[in-house]
Computed example of a mutant assay.
Amino acid sequence: MIRESLFAAEEREAKLDRLGDVLREMEKHIDFKVLAAEIDRAAPRPSRARGGRPPFPTELMVRAFLLQNLYGLSDEQMEFQVLDRLSFQRFLGLRRSSQVPDRTTFWTFRERLTAAQAGDALFEAVNRQLARHGYIARGGQIVDASLVPVPRQHVTEEEGEQIKAQAMPADWKPAERRQRDVDATWTKKHGKSYFGYKLSVSADRRYKLIRKLKVSTASQNDTLHLEDVLDSANTGRDLYGDKGYVDGEREARLKSRGWRVHIQRKAEKGRPLSVCQKRRNTRIARVRARVEHVFATLDQMGGKLLRCIGLDRARFLLAGKAATYNLRRLCSLKACGVVAF
């Protein structure tokens, strides 16, 4: 027979703590009030001069945005999980409240931050939290890029030419225009076609934390982003990259600025790599593999597929995803006893 208890809720929470609630660990190390203040500075809360229901606190919404990124939840699933899941209710401070944000509230919050281009502000605020714990960029940096798919769209050749000319096809109805992503582009990788955007990051070698990022359309070449994501604050001057970043002129320019460039070499037609070059590539690959762990974790956090339309939304969501990764990584470093120095 199942035993009932007046203190069942408290007993379940106590058991959650014993089992280990990752969200509780985040609360120990992350100052969400500071993150909320940065968001309010970047995207001021809407005026209530005309009345209406007061918006939910910014801190609550920032926490909810973190949860969506951490678990890869849509707005509809987020609403359901907040209503159903004890750990979410506790993390959001809604354990005793009958007021819960709905799917429209989550969407409206993101749209306000996207319009204010607050993604960079959130990402930098998170990096300041990392610095407060002593995890500054050390040991050099690794640069890499990954394709971020969005739902595929099919247009006629004529419509495609108009989109390339930054014009909207005249025969598209208003509803269709709202649902068409005219910023995303097609590209090929290893013989497979992809439609979406590209995320380039610089991760520090010691802690595997994302220090800088850049988002572009998928068709842009990776090599164009290298200098944009260089982290000059890194205490090491070593730069690691794969064969896609080979550019003799740029390497010479970076070396003249004090960078120690470690870019893998690629063979050319009729000119295979020498034994020395192969050994060098292997040495670089051992270090460069650490950035692949970053992208693998992003995949685990619901994958990199975006539920949005347009480059501005993609930039904001990927900055939020990178910020969430850094917060998760901070908790992992703390749990593993990795000392910052």
Rank of each mutant, 00 (worst) to 15 (best):
30 I>Q: 05
281 N>G: 10
166 Q>M: 05
82 V>N: 01
158 E>D: 04
20 G>T: 05
80 F>M: 06
19 L>K: 14
283 R>A: 13
126 V>W: 09
320 G>N: 12
332 S>D: 14
316 F>H: 12
239 L>Y: 01
230 L>Y: 01
31 D>H: 09
323 A>P: 05
271 R>H: 15
217 T>P: 00
302 G>P: 10
41 R>V: 02
210 I>R: 08
223 T>W: 01
88 F>I: 09
147 L>A: 08
104 T>L: 10
324 T>Y: 08
3 R>L: 11
322 A>W: 03
183 D>T: 06
262 H>R: 06
313 R>W: 10
17 D>R: 15
212 K>V: 01
228 D>V: 06
340 A>H: 09
52 G>S: 04
210 I>Y: 05
203 A>T: 14
264 Q>S: 13
8 A>D: 13
138 R>T: 13
267 A>K: 08
230 L>M: 04
194 Y>K: 09
58 T>A: 08
199 L>A: 08
133 H>G: 05
93 G>M: 12
107 W>Q: 10
283 R>F: 03
178 R>L: 06
255 K>S: 09
30 I>A: 04
157 E>D: 12
82 V>E: 01
172 W>C: 04
141 Q>Y: 05
22 V>T: 12
36 A>C: 11
317 L>K: 12
124 E>M: 05
323 A>N: 10
176 E>W: 00
260 R>D: 05
113 L>S: 02
92 L>M: 12
107 W>H: 12
53 R>M: 03
90 R>C: 11
102 D>K: 11
93 G>I: 11
43 A>L: 09
267 A>P: 00
155 V>F: 12
306 L>I: 06
47 S>R: 12
166 Q>K: 14
29 H>D: 14
38 E>F: 00
285 A>F: 01
193 S>R: 13
79 E>W: 05
122 L>T: 03
233 A>C: 01
161 E>A: 15
84 D>R: 11
30 I>H: 04
79 E>Y: 06
143 V>A: 09
261 V>N: 03
309 I>M: 05
257 R>S: 07
219 S>H: 14
209 L>T: 15
101 P>T: 09
179 Q>G: 12
65 F>C: 09
40 D>R: 13
2 I>M: 12
50 R>K: 14
